[in-house]
């Protein structure tokens, strides 16, 4: 393996470094360089975006699969099995596992990779844990950038795993071409969660631990919800796949094989119906909006906060001395004319 730790570290995040060289290293599959860059992008290091520019032309090849569901549903186990299944086909695989940050300390315990550690020393599997960090929209950008980096590294499949609650997670999962929602019987509030938004994004449902009581009921509820959605001819109807890993490894392996086939079917469907193009178009829109927000709005807000102007604005609005519209017009005038943004 190429020894690049120093140069990567020195280059990344600093001005005047050779972004072309770094991008090349990543495209050649250098893990250290890639993981460094993902970190820099997560930390919002400005210079890191330079490197990303050189990486971008090499992206757009990988299939991105999202895996979501409530805590304890067994997402990581499913992810881990999918990694194995894809490795058997000699696909190069990456996993991005998102876990929440503590709202109190800002720290996080990222424990998803624990279930995938058997792949840790496989050089063609790259697993990266990300914390939500609570920055508005930031997570989705970081995940988007990470996907580009892994894509450029030559990964064939990129699995994005996240807890299925909240807008932030839905944004993250929108990076995926195919979204799998993992459920488990007996957790009670699953159906509520599905109604609350995951339903819209799900392409495939998995009922995990399907030997348990309540599997049939969950399956029935799910199917009737899906029926409620109505069905147009030629439209993809999310299949419900039962997976059971208890007492019989053989059936479990069959279940996973079915899941893999369904992922493939869905992909073919996306290609055939040109939905993939639409998805990619939507992704491009989201991505541009995200970058606009982070590179124009972000610096403006940062500067306003740094100079104390932001607090000032808040207090003026509160005292009804000004309205937010006028204030923002002023800001717009200042910043955009000066070209600061």
């Amino acid at each position: 393996m190429e020894n690049t730790s120093r140069s990567t570290r020195e280059c990344s995040g600093k001005e005047g470094c050779d972004h072309v060289e770094l991008a090349k290293r990543i495209i050649n599959g250098n893990i250290r360089a890639a993981s460094r860059l993902i970190r820099d992008l997560e930390d919002d290091v400005l210079q890191a975006k330079e490197t990303l520019k050189h990486i971008y032309p090499h992206t757009g090849r990988a299939q991105v699969i999202g895996i979501t569901g409530s805590p304890g549903a067994g997402k990581s186990t499913i992810t881990d099995e999918l990694v194995s299944a894809f490795r058997e086909k000699e696909n190069k695989v990456a996993v991005l596992a998102v876990d929440p940050s503590s709202p109190f300390s800002g720290g996080a315990i990222l424990g998803d990779r624990i279930r995938m550690q058997r792949h840790a020393s496989d050089p063609d599997v790259f697993i990266r844990s990300l914390a939500t960090r609570g920055a508005l929209g930031g997570l989705s950008n970081a995940v988007g950038s990470a996907i580009h980096i892994l894509d450029a590294m030559g990964k064939d499949r990129i699995l994005v795993e996240t807890v299925g609650v909240g807008q932030q997670e839905v944004d993250v999962i929108n990076h995926a071409h195919t979204v799998i929602v993992v459920l488990v019987p007996g957790m009670g509030d699953d159906i509520q969660a599905i109604k609350a938004g995951i339903m819209e994004v799900a392409d495939i449902f998995v009922i995990n631990k399907a030997h348990r009581d309540g599997t049939r009921r969950l399956q029935k509820e799910l199917l009737s919800l899906l029926d409620l959605k109505g069905e147009c001819p030629g439209e993809w109807k999310p299949p419900v796949i039962l997976v059971d890993d208890v007492l019989n490894k053989d059936t479990f392996n069959e279940n996973i094989a079915t899941l893999c086939r369904t992922i493939e079917d869905h992909h073919q469907h996306l290609v055939r119906t040109r939905l993939l193009e639409k998805k990619l178009e939507k992704k491009a829109v989201v991505e541009i909006l995200g970058v606009l927000r982070s590179s124009i709005l972000g610096p403006i807000v940062k500067e306003l906060q740094a100079t104390g102007e932001f607090d000032d604005m808040v207090s003026r609005v509160m005292k009804r001395q000004n309205d937010p519209y006028t204030l923002v017009e002023e800001v717009k005038g200042n910043f955009l004319r000066n070209g600061k943004g």
Partner: peptide, 13 residues
């Protein structure tokens, strides 16, 4: 391990 599968630390916190 082959028949029953392997258990791994779920790492709950």
């Amino acid at each position: 391990r082959e028949v029953y599968g392997e258990y791994h630390d779920p790492g709950l916190f």
